[in-house]
Design a protein around this nucleic acid. Structure first.
Lengths: 332, 332
DNA sequence: CTGTTAGCGCTTTCAT
DNA sequence: ATGAAAGCGCTAACAG
């Protein structure tokens, strides 16, 4: 094929009308065997591929799903995108990926682009609240992923439960001073803190190492941890929960540099169970990514195909704790 | 906007003809200020976004570039995709990502899909030779990336030079027994071996740890390295070059488990300079990814827009060695 | 069963 | 400076 073929040209070569070619391609059964064979042969020979752009225009559906993430660097999102790509393909959809880089302006541009490209629906890891009002006015459905936002369809993790799992594990191992590394006091922290509280343990807020929001940067994380050390001279806890694996790893490295043994001196549990955690032997909260993707896609595709505007649904999946060497140590 | 708007409806609201709206949107200057303002206002109000699908059909160009990689898990490809997305956007193109999973059948399906979606051109990390003949017959341009294949436009790395850099560094540090971990005797190995040879050092092929081709799996890598140890009891080299960072990291972990110190007992250099290497302090060959992307895109977009079928060009970029702690040790 | 016709939303002559 | 008309490649309604 040296030039792009169209149905019209295929039709000419097969001595049939152009709509007949369309019927053959779409498996319409009211076509004689004879003609089907003739047309298929020509298609094969010239390597014809139907123009989805024209189909989209005519059918008013593109079989395209958008996904807009806040960063692409996070191994967690990579896993997400990878699964999404395969799963969507299985269901006859392609995906188009955009990165908002934690920037709401860019996020909106991305969504406009989605609209322009006639996607049928999209998945969103929101940068914040900024665009939510206009997103809810869009004429196509979307599902928020990894977070729960009221008024939106969403599939996320039970973060409270995740925090609880970690706290329980630490308590079971005999710890009584606790640390936390994260962006702010979100649900996973609250689950952690509440569980301690229910067991008459007060979480000392000095041991909350706050990392600035935004792109996950090793440098920023390191600064935050070193900032803590300047204030406190040494870590005032025997176990620490990091709100993602990147932070957990950075903590581990700083500990190693200072001769602090993990888990003997400090136990560590991360979050997301990315391959960073697997590779480095860091215990971590596992999110059921595959289940998340299938659930999300099912929800979104239902919205696309049923076009019913029923109540928004918000699904929370259950986290599990994957224990590795970084927390396999019992305090005495 | 509760329904998708079209130019026709915008036109009606602005009391002009539909082609006039098109002119306004495309910045045609033969439109009176007055009307431009009126139309823009309506567009703003109703949140109209032009339908790129219809534009594609009419203009016969989609402003879409495909990229098909062999795996998405490799941090190197993640970096590649990330840069590509931003850089393409700067030049007015969107990207559509596919994963061939090292499978030639899937690769061809992906390319067919590209064609169906009317992409203007694509970048390819080939799974092998299988599809190359038909790819060269396609009516749209493509550029092979990370490899050099004759008869194709390609942008890759000077792998011979990379191997040479590593060998030179090891020799300079006083090593005289050498190891290699990789898939097969590719250019980067040849550069390594040749450089040793030129210095009267024979590379002992027993010290070639061969990892099976395919998806980068930590498990397969580990098996290969452990297989070596079963044969040889211990590592018969004081320095080792791993053909990517994932392999380097796996080597490092196995070494650690066995009390082998890096770099004191064995120096290690990886390849790709991914954040795995950065985070773990592994010396690594850096590929200039940004330069690679800009070069590749420039080449591809030239092909797309000039539509001249001149000689294929093949560009090799220069690697650099980033030295980190895993090789900072001088033999005495 | 198969062909004819119309039209998806846009751009692009061609008139005026 | 603006509108009318044609057509990109396809699907779908309608004839026959």
């Amino acid at each position: 094929m040296v030039k792009k073929m169209t149905m019209r040209e295929v039709a000419k070569l097969a001595n049939v009308s152009q709509p007949t070619v369309s019927r053959v391609i779409n498996g319409n059964k009211d076509v004689s065997e004879e003609i089907v064979k003739r047309v298929m042969q020509v298609i094969e020979e010239v390597g014809f591929v139907p123009n989805k752009t024209a189909q989209t225009l005519k059918r008013n559906q593109s079989k395209l799903i958008g996904i807009c993430v806040t960063e692409i660097y996070n191994p967690y999102f990579v896993e997400l995108i990878d699964h999404l790509e395969s799963e969507a393909k299985k269901r006859g959809y392609n995906i188009i990926l955009h990165n908002s880089k934690h920037n709401s302006i860019l996020e909106w541009e991305n969504i406009q682009n989605f609209m322009a490209r006639q996607i049928d629906g999209f998945l969103l890891v929101p940068t914040g609240e900024y665009n939510l009002p206009r997103i809810s006015k869009l004429p196509i459905p979307s599902v928020v992923i990894t977070q729960t936002i009221k008024g939106f369809d969403s599939v996320g993790l039970n973060h409270l439960k995740a925090g609880r799992l970690v706290a329980e594990q630490f308590m079971r191992a005999g710890h009584n001073t606790f640390g936390y590394i994260g962006i702010d006091a979100d649900d996973k922290f609250r689950g952690f803190e509440n569980t301690l509280y229910e067991n008459q343990i007060h979480f000392n807020s000095d041991n909350f190492i706050a990392v600035p929001d935004g792109e996950n940067s090793n440098l920023l994380i390191r600064k935050a941890i070193e900032g803590y050390l300047e204030q406190n001279n040494e870590f005032q806890f025997s176990c620490v929960f990091a709100s993602n694996d990147v932070m957990a790893l950075e903590f581990m490295k700083i500990a190693q540099e200072r001769g602090i043994r993990i888990p003997e001196d400090i136990s560590l549990i991360g979050f997301d169970d990315t391959y960073l955690a697997k590779v480095m032997g860091i215990s971590s909260i596992h999110q059921p990514i595959e289940e998340m993707i299938t659930t999300t896609l099912t929800l979104l595709i239902n919205r696309i195909e049923q076009e019913v505007a029923s109540e928004t649904v918000s699904i929370q999946l259950e986290p599990t704790l994957i224990e590795r060497s970084s927390s396999r140590h019992r305090r005495t």
